[in-house]
Lab assay of single mutants.
Amino acid sequence: MATGGRRGAAAAPLLVAVAALLLGAAGHLYPGEVCPGMDIRNNLTRLHELENCSVIEGHLQILLMFKTRPEDFRDLSFPKLIMITDYLLLFRVYGLESLKDLFPNLTVIRGSRLFFNYALVIFEMVHLKELGLYNLMNITRGSVRIEKNNELCYLATIDWSRILDSVEDNYIVLNKDDNEECGDICPGTAKGKTNCPATVINGQFVERCWTHSHCQKVCPTICKSHGCTAEGLCCHSECLGNCSQPDDPTKCVACRNFYLDGRCVETCPPPYYHFQDWRCVNFSFCQDLHHKCKNSRRQGCHQYVIHNNKCIPECPSGYTMNSSNLLCTPCLGPCPKVCHLLEGEKTIDSVTSAQELRGCTVINGSLIINIRGGNNLAAELEANLGLIEEISGYLKIRRSYALVSLSFFRKLRLIRGETLEIGNYSFYALDNQNLRQLWDWSKHNLTITQGKLFFHYNPKLCLSEIHKMEEVSGTKGRQERNDIALKTNGDQASCENELLKFSYIRTSFDKI
């Protein structure tokens, strides 16, 4: 039985969820670079991206490699990797027998973001014989899940209580170790020597080791999670996991709180800001991140802002960003909400898709409305799209047979046209069989910064309504002859009103 693990408890099935942008060198404390989270699957090609990484700022997932063999891993080693800020997950990587050479110096898994409450997941690794993470000293947050690894031993010899604050939620089941077939031998045991430290858990006094050649490092209890030197002297209180010299914040392997210019500090002093819960960055760093993602459509890219001495992905609820200094300031009234469309555009074809934009005031991208039916549609669209004030790209209304009016965009005031449909149009209306009105132009103002209007096959939309939009939106004169079809717009509506004058002759039985 794995020490510190839980057996036999019912657990939810383990679901495996399925960018080499360097964020800056980590400095003297770390020998390499800070790398983003990685999802490495199918083959070993991307694994080489770990070569210079000291910190993975995010998670590391290595999974679904069915053609790899043990010899493929023999020359692979990433000794610079010290810390993973989120979680480490391995799933069905064939041929991998140990992690001792792959990650010989991995010391800390912070667990800032977890995989279903777990910071370390080893699942269905069919050839893994031992973990071998002999320098792993601290899992700051989260638990361990090690399950269905039929060859995995050296679990009962690990004292997880020396690595985690609590072992109650560890789930370590259905491994070879369960069948008591392992016969784990710690260093020196074969020669009758006791080389590794022994600890007591559940009444068992057991030597602690990761492999037959690597003991588990056990520091004096007084050192807590700070770690200790090879001689057993406690590291500085700002260290986490390990250090090369005692009581020196510049000799830590990793930091308990924050890293700044080669030393570990309790908090980031001005003019620095907390970033990702582990390091200090200056304003320029946060500003660069903001600008890199301002026009990016890459998933996970955030326009970072500053709030409460932190550089964070977005302002919290009730705050909006001051564009001059990136500071989050309290909103006066309802907060603006910028919604970034991942692929640059979004099609609204149902109430469900409209709900995804609920509360958005600025759309960074283009909207395509293609709704053919739905219950209580006008009210639903207004509830979900009615706060949109600005669209950076274009607005396209296409084959939306259920629409009679666009009044559900009740606050839309600006279409920038930074991206144009077919390279020309910022407003595009095609084949809307029941569209009769755009907006009530006596109450609604709309500016279209650039781009043209396109109207074709809107049989109940009168040309007068379209011409009014040209005047109000500032697009009059931009359109070419064929942009607004004269014969297919309003051709099934009563669009022309003329005053009919009647004269009559009164007659009676005795007068003409």
Rank of each mutant, 00 (worst) to 15 (best):
L76V: 13
N242Q: 14
E130S: 08
L102V: 11
I122D: 01
C286Y: 08
N282Q: 12
N117D: 02
P269N: 01
S323N: 02
G142F: 01
S284T: 08
D248L: 05
K100E: 15
D178I: 05
T199V: 12
F123N: 07
I185R: 05
E151K: 14
D165I: 06
C186Y: 02
R74V: 14
I312R: 15
S324L: 09
S244H: 09
F285Y: 03
D261N: 09
E147T: 15
L128K: 00
C280F: 01
F66K: 13
C255K: 01
C223F: 08
C255R: 00
R208S: 08
C268L: 01
E238M: 04
F285S: 09
N242G: 07
R145S: 11
G318H: 05
S225I: 12
L96N: 01
V305S: 11
T45R: 15
I40T: 07
C280D: 00
C301S: 06
R74G: 02
T85Y: 03
L240D: 08
C53F: 00
P271C: 07
I163F: 11
F283L: 11
I306F: 14
H59G: 06
L89T: 06
S161D: 04
E49L: 10
L128T: 02
S77A: 02
N308R: 12
E97H: 05
Y94Q: 15
P316W: 02
N138V: 15
S296N: 14
E33W: 12
C239Q: 01
K176A: 04
N105P: 00
L99P: 01
G192L: 11
H307M: 14
H302K: 01
Y304D: 03
P336H: 13
N105T: 04
Q276Y: 07
V121P: 00
E180D: 05
C186G: 11
N150V: 08
K100N: 15
E168R: 09
L240E: 02
I158Q: 08
C243M: 00
T329V: 08
L131S: 04
V55R: 00
H59M: 09
D184T: 04
G183Q: 09
D178M: 14
R263E: 14
L96R: 01
N138R: 15
F115M: 04
S324K: 14
H302I: 10
G95S: 05
G333C: 07
D178N: 13
L50D: 00
G232R: 04
H59V: 13
S98G: 04
P246T: 02
N325R: 11
N149P: 01
T267Y: 15
K129C: 10
T194F: 13
R162L: 09
S237G: 10
C223M: 02
C186T: 12
M137F: 05
S324G: 09
N150L: 10
K217R: 10
L60N: 00
L131P: 01
R297H: 13
D169V: 07
D86N: 12
C235R: 00
P271V: 05
F258L: 09
P313D: 10
S296M: 10
V144H: 01
R298W: 13
G111L: 01
N282V: 03
R297P: 09
R41S: 15
G132F: 00
S317H: 08
L90W: 03
Q303M: 12
I222W: 15
N150A: 05
R279N: 07
G227Y: 10
S143G: 08
E207V: 08
I146D: 00
C286N: 01
E168T: 10
N43A: 07
E151V: 13
L332Q: 13
S213W: 07
V305N: 08
E51C: 15
R92H: 10
Q245N: 13
Y273W: 14
Q61S: 14
D165V: 09
G183M: 06
C235G: 01
N322R: 12
N105G: 08
T199S: 07
H302G: 14
P104C: 01
L233K: 08
L128Q: 05
W160Y: 04
E151Y: 13
L99S: 01
K176Y: 15
H214I: 05
L81I: 00
N202Q: 06
Y319L: 05
F115Q: 05
D39G: 02
C153S: 15
L99M: 11
Y30C: 05
P271N: 04
E49N: 04
C286V: 07
T199P: 09
I109W: 00
T140A: 12
V305W: 04
E180K: 10
G333T: 05
F115C: 04
R263P: 02
L174R: 11
H214C: 14
S324Y: 03
F258S: 06
L240G: 07
E97Y: 08
N179L: 04
V108T: 13
